[in-house]
Each structure stands twice: as C-alpha cells, then as structure tokens.
C-alpha cells in the first residue's frame, strides 16, 4: 500500500479491464518517474473522449458527430450493410480494405444467461434501416461463437423480406494453420463452406 494519491492512481488504473494490481502499479510509477510523459494531454484526452464521443445515430458506431464518418461517406456502397456486434469489429473489418459498404453495430450478442435478449440489441433500428428497400444485402458478421451464431440465426429469420439477400461471413480453417490441429467443429464448418476452385 502506498500513501494517498499514489495509491488512488493505482486503484483507478486497476479498475480498467485487463489491468491487474501489478500492471496498475507499473503504469502509475511510469507516470510518476518519466518526466517526458505528458499527463496533461492524457487527462485532456480522457475528458474529451467522454464529452465528445457518442454513438452514431444511424449505425451505432463510435463517432464525434451525430453520424459517423462511414455513414457520412457518399462513396460507400449504400446497398450493403454489414452487421457486427461491437464498434471494435468495424475497425477490424475496415483493416481488411475488402468491404466498402455500411455497418450496423448491434451492441452485443444474444445471451439470455447474461440477461441480453432481442430487446437489448439494436435489432429494431436495423429493421428500420431496411424499410426503404435501398439495401439489397445484409452481411451478418457476428462472432463465430455460440452467442454470435444464435444472433445470426435470429437475425436471418427476422430479416426475411423480398429483394434482400442475407449472408453470413464464412468460417473455417485459419490461414497459416495446420489441418491436423483443427478441431472438428471448425473443420466441419470448413467442409460446409467449401467452394469450387476456379481453374
């Protein structure tokens, strides 16, 4: 235990996800001992992020304005919406540079055991976005785990409407892995999703 404000700093840092008591102590002493560390800038950014960042009124992604940069971008393909669980999934997909459509962030996945049902997710907003028939494809990119699959199944039944194609991201063998180490669930999925090799 340290005295006063040092211990308070360690305690506050330790409340952050993924930071245990040792890490909190290390970060606190780095802040204390490194003269070049700009504490004012860090404090200002922490204040700003709380004040300025909100969720996009259209897609639910993080944004500093009412709508996010992706929803405001006219060059994006307005006919395709990719549905993800969290805003950080948007960043992961954007890094691929493969997708040029729009996003819809659900805010989680169905998990009754955690008290998360359809009413806790942004399903209604998604259905409203599809009302004008401008969207021709919805790509469901929820996590490839049990809750993500349940959410995808639920969505696929919710979004049945004429002229709308609902697709799910492929899942299977990871690039760079050995086949012999793949578990039977993943390998089974890879077989289900096999495709024709173009000559």
């Amino acid at each position: 235990m340290y005295e006063g404000i040092v211990q308070e700093l360690i305690d506050e840092l330790g409340r952050l996800p993924g930071i245990g008591p040792k890490s909190a102590q290390r970060i606190a002493f780095h802040i204390l001992q490194t003269q070049s560390f700009d504490t004012t800038r860090l404090a200002q950014i922490l204040m700003d992020v709380r004040e300025k960042v909100r969720f996009c009124s259209i897609c639910g992604n993080v944004s500093e304005q009412d709508t996010c940069t992706i929803c405001r971008d006219p060059r994006r393909n307005q006919a395709i919406i990719c549905v993800v669980e969290e805003a950080k999934d948007v960043a992961a997909i954007e890094r691929t540079r493969e997708f040029r459509g729009l996003y819809h962030v659900l805010g989680g996945a169905l998990s009754p055991i955690d008290g998360i049902g359809p009413n806790e997710l942004r399903f209604t907003q998604l259905v409203q976005r599809l009302a004008d028939a401008a969207v021709t494809e919805v790509i469901i990119a929820t996590d490839p785990n049990l809750e993500g699959e349940a959410t995808a199944t639920y969505l696929s039944r919710l979004l049945v409407q004429p002229g709308l194609r609902v697709t799910r991201l492929a899942s299977g063998l990871p690039v760079g892995g050995d086949l012999e180490y793949a578990d039977e669930v993943t390998l089974g999925r890879a077989f289900e999703g096999r495709r024709v090799v173009e000559a």
Partner: peptide, 20 residues
C-alpha cells in the same frame, strides 16, 4: 469433444433460450 450440441441448439431460438 464428446458431444457437440451447440450448432443444433442455436439453429432454433426457443431451444437456445431453453438451453441457456
């Protein structure tokens, strides 16, 4: 794995909520 029931259960929402 000895039994893989997840895929069949999540394919039906009432079964998924019951299993939870």
């Amino acid at each position: 794995s000895l039994g893989s029931y997840g895929a069949d259960i999540v394919a039906d929402y009432p079964s998924f909520t019951a299993a939870n």
